[in-house]
Amino acid sequence: MMSQLQQEDRLNLAPKKFNMWIFIFTSFMFFAALTSGFIVYIGGTKAHTMGMKLPDIFLYSTAVMVLSSVTLFMASRAAKALQYGRQRLYLLLTILLGVAFFAIQVYAWLILLPGMGVYFSNPNATQSFVYVFIWMHLLHILAGLLLLGNTLWRCYRSIEQVRNLYSMQMSSIFWHFVDIIWIYLYVFLLLNQQ
């Protein structure tokens, strides 16, 4: 009886996947609120402008992020085709790209932006917003990396396919979302710069 219960439990992963989708809505609302805050702030008076150009580095980080989504997609495909070797490889690649993105963002935040005279603690809150966007997004990246790492680890432990796929899907949903959020933030900032 007990083991049978467990068996059914394992197959019943759809609601948990659904949890992830709802979490994404939640997270989206969070970023929507931040960007709306930005708009309200900028709309407050004409004096409020960003007064800076986004450095090109964000273009590179965006490219890295998109690339990581592509590799993750490949990993999913490999997982579905039962090619575990390739799945691991692509997963690893995704994680590396994720870490690279992380590093680029941290570089931009710690070195590049202050070098441009753009500080977090700043009478012009639009520039502070840039930092807030980066940080809040990095938090999500961190969570995404943990998820991906977990998936990779499970992949090495060669658990059964159902759970492998489930784990793959969970991290994919989240990672692609984090990717899209970054693109959204980047485009948003591009549109508002100067």
Binding site: F30, A33, G37, F120, S121, A125, S128, V132
Partner: peptide, 21 residues
């Protein structure tokens, strides 16, 4: 609720990091 988090995060920055949101 996430919107309140956003509001609260900005408030925390104003309180402790000298921003002017």
């Amino acid at each position: 609720f996430p919107v309140l988090v956003a509001g609260v995060v900005l408030l925390i920055f104003d309180r402790s990091f000298g921003t002017s949101f």
